[in-house]
């Protein structure tokens, strides 16, 4: 940054080029292996409301072309992301390329977000959901592309109702949202192809 002004903003990635490739590879690996918990191996300084993997993911993927929907508008988070990513904030969930969810108890239903169009299913929202813990030891059973047989994923704070809604939304494939669960430095992804059984 060429700004020398004293700012309360946290500084973002230490090594922009190399941190973002590391984080992207973790994300791609997670997306290619649904449910498998991965570490992003980067802890960019960030406001406390942003978990390290959430901050890292935003710094890696967001910019002026990706409207972001924030579940709760912490000024510090919005300022941080606006400064480092230059992403526009949108109050419309259907307009968002990315959505950051910080409270699973009050998060909106899956179909609140943009699922893309049948001809352009890629134009859908990617949900970043911060959670209280992730484990592959138990939980819902996941299968589909990227999963050799089946894998279990336990996400603290995500209700059975939400999982059922999510599974129901799969009927609209190729439309659908893709989800990255975030816990500290860890992530687990659920692309729209993943089947969930409770």
């Amino acid at each position: 940054m060429d700004t020398a002004t004293a700012t309360p903003l946290a500084p973002g990635f230490e090594q922009r080029v190399f941190d973002s490739i590391k984080v992207f590879r973790a994300l791609a690996d997670a997306m290619a292996h649904p449910g498998e918990i991965r570490r992003v191996n980067a802890r960019p300084p960030a406001p406390t409301q942003l978990m390290p993997a959430a901050a890292a993911m935003c710094l890696t993927l967001l910019d002026f072309e990706t409207p972001l929907w924030l579940q709760t508008s912490h000024a510090s988070v919005a300022d941080y992301l606006r400064f480092h990513c230059g992403c526009p904030m949108t109050p419309e969930a259907t307009q968002a390329s990315f959505a950051l969810i910080t409270n699973t108890l009050t998060m909106p239903a899956v179909n609140t977000f943009n699922a893309g169009e049948p001809e352009y299913p890629d134009r859908s929202t990617t949900l970043m959901i911060q959670v209280e813990s992730l484990s592959n030891a138990s939980g819902v059973r996941l299968s589909g592309p990227g999963v050799r047989d089946a894998i279990y994923l336990d996400v603290a704070g995500v209700s059975a109702t939400y999982w059922r809604e999510l599974q129901a939304s799969r009927a609209a494939f190729p439309c659908g949202v893709d989800i990255v669960f975030i816990w500290g430095e860890r992530i687990a992804a659920l692309p729209r192809t993943t089947r969930v059984s409770c």
């Binding site: 890629d122 990617t126 990227g146 729209r192």
Partner: peptide, 10 residues
Amino acid sequence: RRAILKAIAI
């Protein structure tokens, strides 16, 4: 990278 993630998802 964003395009690749969507490609993996679909």
